[in-house]
């Protein structure tokens, strides 16, 4: 029995080592000892035009660049310095909606809820590039509630 396990184990290792050759890695077709040329950094969309949401509860995509110096960590949340309730007058940014102030039991808090603190967990920037994989997702054409 023991021998059997060792055999299967060995086979597994050899097989996986072999199979590795065929796996496309993020590195591309470059051997591990070579340094591939860096891919281009695409320009982040920064034209401040909102994109359509594909369904009502989709977190809207971010219509502006955030790669500048938008620090979000234990100390600071730069996004909130424009999007929080206190700051929308000066920044003229849309206020984070009330769902951001609710904890998971639906209780409304005075501050943005911790589970909504790291904005880019849900909200993402956009770049104008050919998608790496095809996407056949079809958004809702109508809002089922209103039919619009």
């Amino acid at each position: 029995m023991k021998q059997m396990i060792v055999c299967v184990g060995l086979f597994g290792i050899i097989y996986s080592a072999h199979a590795d050759d065929n796996i496309a890695t993020l590195r591309g077709e470059v051997s591990i000892t070579d340094q591939p040329p860096a891919p281009r950094m695409e320009q982040v969309e920064d034209h401040d035009i909102k994109r359509k949401r594909n369904y009502p509860m989709q977190p809207p995509t971010i219509p502006h660049a955030i790669d500048k110096y938008y620090q979000v960590d234990l100390f600071v949340n730069k996004c909130l310095s424009c999007h929080s309730r206190q700051h929308t007058e000066a920044s003229q940014a849309p206020m984070v909606s009330d769902t951001h102030y609710k904890d998971r039991d639906g209780k409304v808090l005075a501050e943005v809820s911790p589970r909504r603190y790291f904005c880019s967990q849900c909200h993402v920037i956009q770049v104008e590039v050919k998608p790496l994989v095809d996407n056949t997702f079809e958004g809702l054409l109508h809002d089922p509630a209103t039919g619009w």
């Binding site: 110096y69 620090q71 960590d73 100390f75 730069k78």
Partner: peptide, 10 residues
């Protein structure tokens, strides 16, 4: 603020 360095606790 914070244009060149990380910000402290604000």
């Amino acid at each position: 603020k914070g244009i060149a360095h990380k910000l402290p606790n604000m």
